[in-house]
Design a binder for these strands. Structure first.
Lengths: 122, 122
DNA sequence: CAAACACACTTGCGGTATGCAAGCGAGTAT
DNA sequence: ATACTCGCTTGCATACCGCAAGTGTGTTTG
């Protein structure tokens, strides 16, 4: 658990994947958090080998890979949602207020919504 | 958020505090995870300065300090509970099966229970 | 078709954080 | 008074990280 989740970068990648629709190496890289390329490559590989994300070639551009959440990764949704809630409450959060408000009004249905979005892809 | 939570050791300390009733330096140190003393001292200080735990002298033994969760720390309960659930589902977890079963049957009331236990101390 | 470019990495290097063992000062037990 | 406990602090070797540059494969452009 903590080997995979207890790492800031891994969590950020999962978050980008889950909430922001980012899915390729460059999209993660340019996500504003300034992760180094070697660290990103390493974390993606770990996330893959721990079965949280899956990697496949982009069908439209063969140099590119597409990363997606596995079932195990999708199951992290409640956890990330709780992180967002906690941050919103106790720290100046960077999360979009729109999402925060939505989660605050109904956590469970928001989780169900995220799950539904991913259901088609996995 | 990730500065405080995105660190494995900090999370373990909060967990020990929240679920296992550990509250002194030595109790954290001998919690089986083999954290180094310098790291433990550093993490406790960070947790304190970020307002997640509070430190005070033990009234029965003046060499000892007692650490306890603040309101901000207690609010991490749902998050830790979700971690336990996720681990129980996807990894061979080290969490006591008894607790896991209890959480599985009713997450919200378990969280309320933890909160209640801490209410008296804060 | 060749040259330029994009993408996902990999490598080298200097700096920071970590693990380990030992030590230290204040307080307690004998 | 002496030995011991507790919560650190210090020194040192190793591991990890951030940054910049380079590599190989695949794609676009003239």
């Amino acid at each position: 658990m903590l080997e995979t989740i207890g790492d800031p970068w891994s969590l950020l990648i999962v978050r980008d994947l889950m909430f922001y629709g980012r899915k390729s190496f460059n999209e993660f890289l340019n996500a504003g958090e300034k992760i180094a390329t070697n660290i990103l490559a390493d974390r993606l590989q770990r996330l893959e080998s721990s079965g949280i994300v899956a990697k496949q070639r982009d069908s439209t551009d063969a140099r590119r890979y597409v990363y997606r959440l596995t079932e195990k990764g999708i199951d992290l949704t409640p956890l990330l949602v709780d992180m967002i809630l906690w941050s919103a409450r106790h720290e100046k959060t960077a999360a979009p207020p729109k999402i925060v408000r939505k989660i605050l009004s109904d956590r469970d249905s928001y989780i169900a919504e995220v799950r539904k979005e991913w259901a088609s892809q996995s």
